[in-house]
Design a protein around this nucleic acid. Structure first.
Lengths: 210, 210
DNA sequence: ATAATGATTTGAATTAATTAACAGGAGGAG
DNA sequence: CTCCTCCTGTTAATTAATTCAAATCATTAT
């Protein structure tokens, strides 16, 4: 096996996963690519092609077994494995993310929150105490931290990223508008909320005109 | 003109826009595709190809004029035009978005916040009063609302979306994990934060293994 | 049992996106 | 003024992604 799965497919997997989860909830046991395509608004062809990348879980004349497909995609995405995360920056966005229940369900355990603001330090978010950044190094030596979620102001993002990378983090989820690039082999996902908004604006303009 | 610009290109524009903005800030007047490619981590070819979609702003032997390119991309994205927005759902995420200064800079004016929780109604976020959902209809009849930002629980997303669509919104920025589909010709951008996190998890696993 | 149906698999064909190559204009040095 | 270098616009080549279509297997009905 081990034929390489393209990133385009990978980025669609969470979406499949979500839809399958919904199907499970309403107790639908099996589904054909055709019906799934109608629900998701993509072609049946693509679904079959995508799902085939990691071995045929479908059965001709039957469709896909929702549960096993769900599990399989989960396995590929790494839901069978748990990741520990910390949030750095307990501002509005950090706070929102810390309260986001979905992450835990998906295998991401928040084990620490850090901030530099003395007024925030000592407060609790979702049962987790906000620690001062001074304690970050100590904390990361005593705990395995897989992912650092950065919700700090742009100007300090690079510095903080360097630090957590040095301390052995495996991935960084960066919410600062500044793109992050590191020499370490740390996996980085930059989130740019306002980019999405800008695209929305473009599409609205487009629709108004054409 | 009017050769169609692909969505792949459009989705890259905000990124160009950001980098150009950074260049302006440090007073760099001109830039070549080559240098920009190094900064952004994409090929120079692609940059030239992209920028060419909307007419040659570059000059041979010189490069691109940062300021005029910045303005031009802004124009395409619709930064010259302002959009009014409302946030529905004043929970953690709604609160975070309401406090996000960047949106205003990019042409998006928040003019209303709505929630159903009586404890939240009447409070202010970033100078804007939280109104009860009961007042939404009235509000939208007295104000032009271009975009509704939905940060409500999944189970009520569809209903709220229908409502704002009926009331004449042009675009919806949906933060609920549930994908949104409407019959109206309202432009929808679904944001799925946890999808990004899932991909991060996948990439970490991938790197660990090989 | 057997035929008909429905839905996957597989691989080819098409379409889209990205990268590479190149011809030629603009700027700068001498 | 002339040459040389730089860097774009553009076309061509490559690679990736998506769709189509034939072959085939499970299920269901007769």
């Amino acid at each position: 096996m081990a034929k390489k799965i393209s990133m385009a497919v990978i980025r669609r997997l969470p979406r499949y996963y979500r839809y399958l989860s919904d199907l499970l909830r309403v107790d639908i046991k099996r589904i054909s690519s055709k019906e799934l395509s109608q629900r998701m608004g993509i072609t049946a062809s693509q679904i079959r092609q995508d799902l085939n990348c990691f071995g045929g879980f479908g059965q001709q004349g039957y469709g896909y077994n929702v549960e096993s497909l769900y599990k399989e995609i989960g396995k590929i995405l790494g839901v069978d494995r748990r990741f520990t995360t910390i949030i750095i920056g307990a501002g509005n966005m950090g706070n929102a993310l810390a309260n986001y229940e979905n992450f835990k369900k998906r295998g991401f355990d928040l084990i620490g929150i850090f901030d530099i603001n003395p007024n925030r330090v000592g407060q609790y978010i979702n049962g987790i105490e906000i620690m001062h950044m001074d304690r970050l190094e100590e904390f990361m030596k005593n705990n395995v931290v897989d992912i650092a979620i950065l919700t700090v102001p742009s100007h300090s993002t690079a510095e903080v990223a360097e630090k957590v990378a040095d301390l052995g983090v495996k991935g960084i989820w960066n919410f600062s508008p500044q793109d992050l690039k590191l020499s370490h082999n740390v996996v980085i996902e930059n989130v740019h909320l306002s980019d999405g908004l800008a695209v929305l604006g473009y599409r609205i303009k487009e629709q108004e005109q054409g």
